[in-house]
């Protein structure tokens, strides 16, 4: 491979990813059961006094676009950090038990405590995610060798299955909760409004800063614990910081849009195949790819099965899977 090849391809890849993201944002404002022309969208965006049906539609679309961007970016970033943390290609916030914890928190709130308001349910979901993440970390950290990648992955898988069982136990005996839960669990950015962003934003930003500053740390961790220590890192502490960022990001994304499973897995893989193994590149690129994936998934979901909307959590899988398979087949999937 020549030198120019090495430097131009990543630049091209980043440009294309950003272009796809931008196009997704534009499409998200225009496309839906009610198609809008650019003039109408522009007018609605620039003229605060406009107060017609189109304006309402655009406002709603701005809200869901913001949610899609934030949730997608957060999930992509959390997934990348997770894969670096566990040095496992299957790493995904779901693997740390976070999604399952959020689901159990949500179901507990509805089934046992009778919580009916969405914002309160979100707080329970966040708490569940945090408990799951901390629990998995704490258990994996026991023992002499600390939280090794394989222990994190196994503990996460165990916690996921355990939480899911309790969730099922609650749901099987409670039709009403199942009714609420089945619509929450698919993940959606529609019909929530920008208001949900406010309380979640601090978590999201803290998580993002921790994760992005963790790039150097992940690059060192990728070399293995011993080498990381030799390079002067305290592997245990580093893991804790990155683990915290994953919990914050994934929890925040779940609070914004419900559990969207696929993004955290696909975005980092795509980033790695396009840009190589450095987390300096993978982390930001995963944000872009995750945001683009969720935004486009939302757009396509609005129009693919009229008159209903297909939820974003389902569309990310429908769009993401073929892309993912193509990348896996094309790319050299080096181990992490």
């Amino acid at each position: 491979m020549t030198l120019t090849n090495r430097t131009t391809r990543p630049a091209l890849a980043v440009t294309i990813a950003l272009a796809v993201l931008a196009a997704g944002v534009v499409a998200s404002l225009h496309v839906g059961s009610r198609m809008l022309s650019p003039e109408v969208v522009w007018a609605a965006l620039t003229d605060p006094r406009a107060d017609d049906a189109d304006h309402a539609v655009v406002t709603a679309r701005v809200a869901r676009t913001v949610l899609a961007l934030l949730a997608g970016g957060a999930l992509g970033l959390a997934g990348a950090a997770m894969q670096g943390l566990t040095r496992n290609p299957l790493g995904d916030p779901g693997i740390l038990g976070i999604n399952a914890g959020a689901a159990l928190g949500m179901v507990t709130a509805v089934a046992l405590l009778g919580v009916t308001s969405l914002p309160v349910q979100i707080w329970f979901a966040l708490a569940g995610a945090a408990v799951a993440g901390v629990l998995v970390h704490a258990i994996a950290g026991l023992g002499r060798d600390g939280a090794t990648p394989i222990k994190l992955a196994v503990a996460g898988a165990a916690a996921t299955a355990g939480f899911t069982s309790w969730t099922s136990a609650l749901l099987i005996t409670d039709l009403q909760t199942l009714e609420t839960f089945r619509f929450w669990q698919v993940g959606t950015v529609g019909g929530r409004g920008v208001e949900v962003v406010g309380p979640v934003l601090p978590f999201l930003l803290t998580g993002a800063v921790l994760a992005l500053t963790g790039a150097r740390l992940l690059d060192v961790l990728a070399l293995g614990d011993d080498l990381a220590r030799g390079l002067g890192r305290r592997a245990g502490l580093d893991r804790l910081v990155v683990g915290l960022s994953v919990i914050l990001l994934a929890g925040a994304a779940t609070a914004l849009a419900g559990p969207i499973a696929f993004v955290g897995l696909v975005a980092p893989h795509a980033a790695r195949i396009l840009l190589g193994p450095s987390y300096f590149r993978i982390l930001p690129m995963s944000v872009v790819i995750g945001a683009a994936l969720v935004t486009w998934a939302d757009v396509v979901g609005r129009v693919i099965l009229p008159p209903t909307e297909v939820q974003v959590g389902i569309m990310t899988a429908v769009i993401g899977v073929p892309v993912f398979f193509a990348l896996v087949r094309r790319g050299r999937m080096g181990s992490l």
């Binding site: 222990k151 196994v154 355990g162």
Partner: peptide, 14 residues
Amino acid sequence: GALGAPFLLWLVAT
């Protein structure tokens, strides 16, 4: 699931 999970977690912890 509910009992297997703690058991697996115990395996991890030890």
